[in-house]
Design a protein around this nucleic acid. Structure first.
Lengths: 167, 167
DNA sequence: GACATCGTTTAGAATTTTCTAAATGATGGT
DNA sequence: ACCATCATTTAGAAAATTCTAAACGATGTC
């Protein structure tokens, strides 16, 4: 039955595409491959299932699965009479985005925003500089205020309920 | 004048924070440092200005500046009687997002979406598989349709004018 | 048209990140 | 209590990325 072959080939490609996608967004390749595998698994997978299917070590599987857990992208599910850890994918993307991704993004934004404000305050207490004319100082301050304003807007946007409505 | 010192120190920190931010989002550290430098520069910078201020080679400066140009985050500005290349930061974040970042994100999403559809189609023409029961096949197909639907929603969201209104 | 200066390319060095094997810790079964 | 089995930690190997120096090409100057 040749059609079966093309199906499993397409599944492998799906998994690799998942890896390429997360990698393209700077999240590492393994995390996407692993989520894709679990997402297409109707039944929970053990760590060894994962490491053999993805051809990685159990150590990698363990570390990556915990990253996925932090993002609420994967759930630990107990299996009757088996003390191994089994995992299944969270299929509600809304939950992954709201509880996993957005808090991480907001945290990163907060770090950046903090520095913008510190720079702005340092500029307020040091109005004269040797290598900038007064007019240039004004330009710099204006840009810092623009950046602070953008940061505020972005943070408000991410914390609003707008996003979950759209998903 | 000690306040001057703390100002320039805060500027250096601003630049490093810019680098850390882009790095956290998987874009490399240099690109953020360079944009931060140009964003706080009231007058255009030459490549050598940049490489000395950031303490990097001219080669790195050249490659990174072109990446920033692709994202419409930086503009090439001619300077009277000087054949060197000068650059200034785009201060309209709306332009950077709309013309620079969003197209790149949509392109990455399109790659992922294409594979979702291919997998879905392969599943349609290969309804029977040796390692999955019919009920499981149905679950997998449903999940693939959910993923395809999410992809469609995301792409629509990014291509709508909603985002520019929010910035 | 030769020289000087600047930007780009590229081959490979340096750094960072990712991955693994082995050791360790933990837990259930007998 | 001991053994077997599983997950985690960690130190270092492997791989990927980032950066640079040197060579090159292009362009303006004298």
């Amino acid at each position: 039955m040749p059609s079966q072959v093309s199906w499993s080939r397409e599944v492998r490609r799906f998994i690799e595409a998942g890896g390429n996608t997360t990698h393209a967004f700077g999240l590492g390749r393994l995390i996407g491959r692993m989520f894709a595998l679990l997402y297409l698994s109707p039944k929970p997978c053990s760590l060894e299932d994962i490491s053999t299917h993805l051809d990685i070590s159990k150590a990698s599987a363990s570390m990556t699965i915990r990253q996925l857990e932090e993002w609420h992208a994967v759930r630990h599910v107990p299996v009757e009479g088996d003390r191994r850890d089994f995992y299944e994918a969270e299929t509600e993307f809304r939950i992954i985005v709201k509880q996993g991704l957005l808090p991480g993004i907001r945290k990163k934004l907060a770090t950046a925003g903090g520095q913008i404000h510190r720079t702005l305050e340092a500029g307020a207490s040091a109005p004269v500089s040797s290598d900038h004319s007064p007019a240039e100082i004004q330009i710099i301050k204006k840009r810092l205020r623009t950046a602070a304003n953008l940061h505020k807007k972005l943070d408000g946007l991410l914390s609003s309920r707008l996003i979950e409505k759209l998903l």
